[in-house]
Design a protein around this nucleic acid. Structure first.
Lengths: 245, 245
DNA sequence: CAGTGGTCTAGACCACCGC
DNA sequence: CGGTGGTCTAGACCACTGA
């Protein structure tokens, strides 16, 4: 491993560069669970940083569950390091593909609307703001796994107006193209009715797990998504430790 | 504020002591949102620690959303510092009381069972292990807000066998009495049927938000709880920032 | 422009635990 | 026993931003 250590990108604080350099191969699977990460002293030499700086990067990775650290044994890539925790942005396409199924999506509705219309608005925006409304069905093979109701703030993301979303779904496209600094998830249960039930192949009244996600870039709301999942199929998982107080 | 700064408890690493000393008045509300926390240099003197150590405590608090830090402005107690994030243990009793309502609970079933019975077992335990089964209704005023199906590992928590849960609900009692090192939440939607629907005052088939929580102390499973909430009433909220990679 | 946090260094001692 | 992470220090320079 020491032969081809990932390089720094020169962007931002040194400890974050080191964090990113180590996180990338962990998250994309190049370094499998249980793989040993070089000791602090070795990283110190490799990246020309002091031990405190290397320690801050590793401590941060451990705090977020990507690695486990034990004295003497060293720093190892954690089990479930690639798992999507509840409190992060995840994308259904990646989830389906990781499960080994074919991912596909269909855009059923696409429309420029304003925040006062029947699709509602985005929290924190005037009713007059131009929004792109999308209704997207996501499938694993032939099976619908998520129905996405999405609003995009066209003032914040003007490129979305002409984007065809041919290869990438709107969710993937936004994750890749649009910067964001904060997100909020609200999780609730609701019965599927009408179009929602029909597109998910559910009987009307079936329980769905609904995740509402709004993201901001600084103070500017970027996008709002309401993601419907058949309740019995979809589960969100979070692992955590006691608060340190 | 500087006059009556919270004292250290002398337990564990210095930076965690400082973290706890500052977290306590934030979480119990003594320091309201927006209150200013003394500057690093001042805490350095107050606690006789180096600036790096104080910085580590404050950085950790900021990472967990209890404070917000800006250059020049200083460190302020965060908005929503007392909010319950998705990925922590919360207790419905505290939630109801914070909302200003009267909290009450009723234990409808109580039984010593083994892991092979109709109530199921706890993940990671043999079918023969003795468990305490409880079915608990939680109310805000007269309104049921949560139905709790709970299993407690009596090998890990022998005191539960004779505990009457008179003043504290089982959830509160466990949080207070029993140490744990790891927890897992699984969130799903499910239709309420039979007893569940009846105790929650819902029509059969209504969508419920279900949180399953299992906790461990080291490698030992401690307790499993399945918490049912009327889907339209209960929401879980999580705020977060982009992954740093 | 001055106070605040952000970061970094070089070195130190200690605790744990696999070999 | 020795390698590893855990922690701590004293000091330094920089970046941001509100008064």
């Amino acid at each position: 491993m020491t032969a081809n250590m990932p390089a720094l990108d020169g962007d931002g604080p040194l400890w974050l560069q080191i964090r990113r350099a180590l996180a990338r191969p962990i998250l994309d699977g190049s370094w499998p669970s249980g793989a040993k990460i070089p000791a602090e002293t070795e990283l110190t030499e490799r990246y020309g940083a002091s031990r405190m700086t290397v320690n801050k990067a590793l401590h941060s990775l451990a705090h977020d569950g990507l690695v486990e650290r034990r004295r003497r044994r060293g720093t190892l890539v954690a089990e479930r390091a690639q798992e999507h925790p509840v409190f992060e942005i995840w994308d259904v396409a990646a989830e389906v593909r990781r499960g080994g199924a074919d991912y596909g999506f269909t855009i059923h509705e696409r429309e420029i609307v304003d925040g006062g219309g029947r699709h509602g608005g985005i929290d924190g925006l005037d009713a007059g703001t131009s929004l792109l409304w999308l209704l997207v069905e996501h499938r694993a093979g032939a099976q619908p796994v998520q129905l996405e109701q999405r609003l995009i703030n066209l003032d914040a993301v003007p490129a979305a107006r002409k984007e065809a979303f041919r290869k990438l779904s709107p969710g993937e496209w936004l994750l890749r193209e649009v910067p964001w600094t904060e997100a909020r998830h609200t999780i609730l249960a609701r019965a599927a009715r009408g179009t929602t039930a029909r597109l998910l192949h559910l009987a009307p009244g079936s329980a769905c797990l609904v995740v509402e996600r709004q993201t901001w870039d600084g103070e500017t709301p970027v996008t709002f998504a309401r993601l419907w999942h058949p309740g019995e199929q979809h589960r969100l998982v979070g692992r955590f430790e006691p608060r340190k107080y």
